Amino acid sequence: MPVSRSGRPTAAQLLIGARLRQLRTEAGLSTRQAAAELGTSASALHRMEGHGVGLEPGRVRRLLSAYGREAEAGAVLADVERASRPGWWDAYRDVLPRSPADLIGLEEHAYVIRLYAPAVVPDLLQTPAYAEALQRVRHPEEDDRRIARRVELVVRRQAVLERADPAPPVVWALLEEAALRRRVGDAEVMRGQLAHLRLLAARPGVTIRVVPMYTVHTALLCGPVQLLRYRPASLPDRVLLHTLDGIEVEDRRDVVAQYLIALDSAASVPDSVPISAWRTDWEDARA
């Protein structure tokens, strides 16, 4: 099974491997015992479970049989087949930020997405008009066609919030007041963006809060952060760090733990308010 062009396993591969590890544990088999059933080494099975390496359909079917899960073979093998295909975002490589190839796959498979935005509204929460205005600032040298393509990519990424099966991810976003007072585009763009945030926050499973500028907390020191959590829980959280060069994915447990502590610190700020209760002079301004 191919991996992403970065050389890393894709999110889909990691999830399949984690699912196989969970099924083995539930079957009461050790790594060595399951490897013997497969006719391979324990280290090879460990790579399959931990890194999604070697997920050939025949091997997966044999493992499911050993675990007494033949009834699930069809669904798991369909996942294996899907994981071998390029993601829809592959067609946007010309405008993807410098980042691991499976960045969007990591978003699409998350069941919890936590966002911290100190400066601007995060991509997943932007309106098309706000996204266009921001892309023109980030890429002033590009023509209208390229800008439109970048905005299209942002909008397509947001489809994860609308998915039906599995259910949409739980979203928790903390925005600094500065991110909502900073003018991106004109007043009309800002009014539309604020209205959009309130509509999103009215959905089940979506929380958007605003931290006033007079507060100080740990997350202020780390910049924009996106934390992704998966099922099964044995698959570690990922942190996406937004930089000028692109987006870096961090999965080392100690580093992720530091960012999780920072986000929890920001979440506990007593003066933060829900987006529905936050008001700004943008809403009274004329375009």
Rank of each mutant, 00 (worst) to 15 (best):
144 D>C: 03
114 R>I: 03
198 R>T: 09
134 L>K: 09
139 H>G: 00
153 L>P: 02
103 L>G: 06
192 G>M: 04
103 L>F: 14
120 V>F: 14
213 M>T: 14
195 A>S: 12
113 I>V: 15
220 L>V: 00
158 Q>M: 06
121 V>S: 07
202 A>V: 02
169 P>R: 13
103 L>H: 12
157 R>E: 10
112 V>S: 03
147 I>N: 05
176 E>S: 14
114 R>V: 01
152 E>D: 14
197 L>S: 12
192 G>L: 04
107 E>R: 04
167 A>M: 06
204 P>F: 07
105 G>C: 06
142 E>A: 10
136 R>V: 07
200 L>D: 03
195 A>Y: 04
188 E>S: 01
158 Q>C: 08
210 V>L: 03
152 E>P: 01
200 L>S: 04
173 A>H: 10
230 Y>M: 01
110 A>H: 03
143 D>L: 10
111 Y>N: 14
172 W>H: 14
196 H>A: 11
231 R>M: 05
203 R>C: 04
124 L>S: 08
189 V>S: 03
210 V>M: 02
187 A>V: 09
214 Y>T: 00
123 D>N: 07
127 T>H: 09
191 R>L: 00
104 I>E: 05
123 D>Y: 05
158 Q>E: 01
211 V>I: 15
141 E>R: 13
128 P>Y: 11
135 Q>P: 01
166 P>W: 12
124 L>F: 10
177 E>P: 03
113 I>N: 06
216 V>K: 13
112 V>W: 09
146 R>Q: 14
191 R>A: 01
112 V>D: 02
118 P>H: 05
140 P>E: 12
